[in-house]
């Protein structure tokens, strides 16, 4: 056995298991508030009058609102490594529009846990995938978030 092999503990059984996080109605008010906070002024999301004669008959939700929905605690891989945790990266896929009154359900799984050793030491990555479906069961968006666990540099 080489001592180069990074050693860390985690719950292997949790990988790939899907957990339902909860559901939420995307109300017109929620869309209005999100746009106001972000400074988003695109009429597609804000102009009821213009949207009434558009293809959906109403405004649609900004995609950023949907893929960033926080709907409860997801699964925990119980990674025991390092002292610090950071967001490493994000992937988002958009699949369909969300209209006011749609009810979005989030399901999350831990897709992968792996270690990488580079010049700055060993890092352990945890990749979570969250899928968002509407009340018809249609996938509207998905996001994959990588968290990195690493040792704090001692110097």
């Amino acid at each position: 056995m080489t001592t180069e092999q990074p050693v860390f503990e985690y719950d292997r059984d949790i990988i790939g298991k899907q957990f339902e996080l909860g559901s939420q109605e995307i109300t017109r008010e929620r869309i209005r508030r999100f746009c106001e906070v972000l400074g988003e002024t695109n009429p597609l999301f804000t102009d009821d009058e213009a949207a009434a004669s558009g293809p959906y008959g109403a405004v649609i939700a900004p995609p950023g609102l949907v893929y960033s929905l926080q709907l409860g605690q997801g699964p925990d891989a119980k990674v025991v490594f390092g002292q610090a945790t950071f967001h490493a990266g994000e992937r988002a896929e958009l699949h369909d529009v969300v209209r006011p009154g749609d009810v979005v359900t989030a399901r999350q799984q831990i897709k992968d846990v792996f270690a990488k050793t580079g010049r700055s030491g060993t890092m352990v990555f945890v990749v979570r995938r969250t899928e968002f479906t509407n009340q018809h069961g249609t996938l509207v968006a998905a996001v994959e978030q990588s968290m990195v666990h690493r040792e704090v540099n001692r110097g």
């Binding site: 972000l38 988003e40 695109n42 959906y56 988002a92 369909d96």
Partner: peptide
């Protein structure tokens, strides 16, 4: 990240909401 989505929405409208992909 929402600012990136805002840029893409401004340029592509609903096509972004239906088929966008982001990797950062």
């Amino acid at each position: 990240l929402a600012l990136v989505s805002e840029l893409m929405s401004a340029a592509f409208g609903e096509a972004w909401a239906r088929s966008g992909a982001l990797k950062v």
